[in-house]
Structure formats: C-alpha cells, structure tokens
Design a protein around this nucleic acid. Sequence first.
DNA 1: CGCATCCCCTGCCTGC
DNA 2: TGCAGGCAGGGGATGC
Length: 293
Amino acid sequence: MPELPEVETVRRGLAPHMEGRRVRRLTLNRPDLRFPLPEGFRDRVEGRRIVQLSRRAKYLVMTFEDERAIIAHLGMSGSFRIEDTIPGVFHHARSKDQAHDHVIFDLAGDDGATVRIIYNDPRRFGFMDLVEPGELDRYPAFAALGPEPTGNLLSADYLAERFRTKKSPIKAALLDQRVIAGLGNIYVCEALHRSGIGPERAVHTLVTRTGRASARLEDLTRAIREVIAEAIEAGGSSLRDHIQTDGSLGYFQHRFRVYDREGEPCPTPGCRGIVSRIVQSGRSTFHCAACQA
DNA sequence: CGCATCCCCTGCCTGC
DNA sequence: TGCAGGCAGGGGATGC
C-alpha cells in the first residue's frame, strides 16, 4: 500500500492517539514480520511513554521519552487501526482479517483514557525495529536515504548533480530511495506523466552539457512536489484494502492520471494518446507514449 | 557500480 | 464453481 503520502496519512491519524501516552501492554502475535521482531521487544517498550510519532521517507518512527525509538515500515500491505477500549464506546467495524493482526499496542494516558493500536499486515512485507537512544541517525536504512520530496533539500540542481553521469532509466532512478526518499510506483508514474517525461528516458539526458538542470528536470521536480502535496492533502490513495487508521478512505486514487489506467485516454489536454502499461524492473509503469518523451 | 531478476507472503481478480 | 495464473503500493539479495 503505502508510499510517502499514505504513511504520512497514517502518521497524522495515529499521532493524536499515541503521543503522550504510555505503552501499557505490547502484544506480539508472532515472532517475526518480514524480519524477526527486535530482541526483547516487549520488555524494552512496555511502561514507556511515547513522546512523538514522526516519519522519515516511508518509515514511521515512534520516539519514547528516553529517546529509544520504534521504527516501523508498512511494506506493501501493512496498516494500523485504532480501537477504543473504553467500555461501551462504539468503534468502527473490523474490515480486516484479524488473523493478520500481528502487533498490538495497548496505550494509556495520564487522564485514564485507553486506546488499542493494532498493526495488521497480510503479506508481512512490513517490519519493526527498535533503536537505542542516539542510534537513530546512524540507523542503516536511514543513513543512505535521499531528501524528502516535501523538503527544501530536493531541487532540480540536486537531481542534476545526481543524474549527470548516470544512464539509468528515470523511472528506476526515482524509485531509488537514495535519490529521493518516499516515492513509490504510483507517484513516480504520476510525476513523470505530469512533467511529460518518458519513463525509459536515461537520466543524464535531463541534464545540460554544462551540468545544469534542463527545463524538463525543473518540471519534474515541480511535479514531484505537487503530486506528493496533493496526495497528502487527499489522505493518500486507497487501493484495494487500504484504509486510514479511523477506517475512512483516502481519495487521491480518483485523481490518478495514468496509474492503473491502462487503455484509457490520456488526460493531458489536447493529447490523443492512450495510457499504456509496460514493465520496468519487474514492476508496472503506466504512461502515455504520445505526450511523454 | 548499475541494473535486471527473483524472492519474501497473502489475497484478489481474471479467464478457462 | 473451481482452479491456475497473474498481479499488487516495497525492498533486499544475487548475479551479470
């Protein structure tokens, strides 16, 4: 499911229920997700207060008062849901198979409010890890990450520098988390379409002979920012079974211009092309050959 | 090094 | 209706 906008939507949904509350009980329904759960996970988390829920790329970071932190990745099918545990309070229907409820956080606030946060992940491509205070900056998966597409560090000049000497197809380069952190298959397809760049184009062709960003690369940088911002604002994309933490749906999927629209007319004004699907690096790319070059 | 391929796992959809 | 095959938002290992 989740690319950056979906993970950010999850973060925003969870934060008010988690921040400031203490883990009263951590329930592990199996010893592993994609990887084994951290050594001594339960004992190292129970009793501690969560001070902040943040996000880096597609990772959620739950920071405790002692700066110990849980790092969670949702993989393809991971989701969190919130269940009120106050007796008598109605909570939304469980639409997911409880067989895949793998990790359960029972939290309690100083005001006595209690809440249950449940991590469900049918495919188990997600994972959780626990880092000790001060280790977060050196966490291997974080060390090599590129800039956030929402931040100031992403610029056309930055991409020009990264692309100058490389011949890889732009689709692959944008999926590389070391180049930009947080983009995935959907938003890469969408950003390329919005900027009129063919997915198979070699990245160095977007850089001028003097090493500057081409106008197309400027367009691409702007398109990436725009599509990510719009998707976050829309609550992400809800495909298949993905829902927000409160059970509601994101609606950015209705604004896809090419993703999962094989055979449909290209939405670019004046373009008479048809959206087609190709496979790159084993994954679907949706694009319009008529207006992306 | 960069890139493609395969794999992890379950569920859903399509076509026969 | 059943079943096989393909496909899915990610990313890591491997091999060329």
